[in-house]
Design a protein around this nucleic acid. Structure first.
Length: 223
DNA sequence: CCAGACGTTGTT
DNA sequence: GTCTGG
DNA sequence: CCAGACGTTGTT
DNA sequence: GTCTGG
């Protein structure tokens, strides 16, 4: 696991205030967002901060077919700058992906136990992401994205050794600014989220099936 | 030069 | 599109 | 990430 | 075992 499943259940006004947005649609609550599905992303387009939909799984602009997107749901923060699939997006097309929490699976003798990870005080996580525009052979455009991953903090390490890169609001503007070419400054932001701002609890295996999209997916499980 | 990859994690 | 391997 | 498919031809 | 679909 790394970051292959998350959820987003947020009110319009919370989303607007956390990301300093002028306007945004109320998003339907989603409890089991899986790769290849649409994810909401905050990005700067024409000097304006807005929310768009991206298909989760970044397809590089040069890709001949879209199947590469099944293997590009995450980008390693340590190498994202130089990987052919990501470096152009890292320079020009950075985004933030709002999440109420994310899921990781712990491998055990009895099988894999899913856990939900949530922010302790904030309403939301803001995952560091990249996006890309791709055209198929019919000329139709598809906007896709990926979530950066890094080492797990001490709390998440109980279940897995990697986790999404989560940015704090002080970094939003400089991460989103397409003109920001300060590569060392950008990489400096890609550190594990503080463990004392991280809560973790076991959830039902209902989360395993991407077809299950309801509050039972995030309900605490008593083990 | 051309051909082929371009991604992550976990498991063997 | 661009890099690596042959 | 997990779940589910993974093959061909011919007939309905 | 590995790929595709969600």
């Amino acid at each position: 696991m790394m970051c292959g499943r998350f959820y987003l259940d947020v009110q319009q006004d919370e989303l607007m205030s956390y990301f300093n947005l002028a306007t945004v649609m109320q998003l339907p609550p989603r409890y089991n967002i899986a790769p290849s599905q649409n994810i909401a992303a905050v990005l700067v387009s024409g000097r304006e901060r807005r929310v768009v939909n991206l298909r989760w799984g970044l397809i590089p602009f040069w890709a001949k077919d879209e199947k590469i997107g099944y293997r590009t749901i995450n980008a390693r923060a340590e190498t994202v700058e130089s990987k052919p699939a990501y470096r152009a997006a890292f320079k020009q097309r950075r985004c933030l992906i709002p999440a109420s929490g994310f899921f990781e699976w712990k491998a055990q003798k009895e099988g894999k136990q899913p856990y939900c990870i949530r922010p302790r005080h904030n309403a939301l996580f803001a995952f560091a992401g990249l996006y890309e525009h791709w055209r198929n052979n019919k000329g139709e455009q598809l906007d896709t994205g990926t979530i950066l991953v890094t080492d797990a903090n001490a709390v998440v390490k109980q279940v897995h050794d990697r986790m999404p890169v989560i940015l704090s609001p002080e970094h939003f503007e400089s991460w989103l600014d397409p003109d920001n070419q300060n590569r060392s400054g950008l990489k400096e932001m890609l550190k594990p989220w503080p463990e004392d701002e991280t809560d973790l609890y076991a959830v039902s295996r209902k989360i395993n099936n991407p077809g299950n999209d309801n509050p039972e997916c995030i309900a605490p499980l008593s083990l």
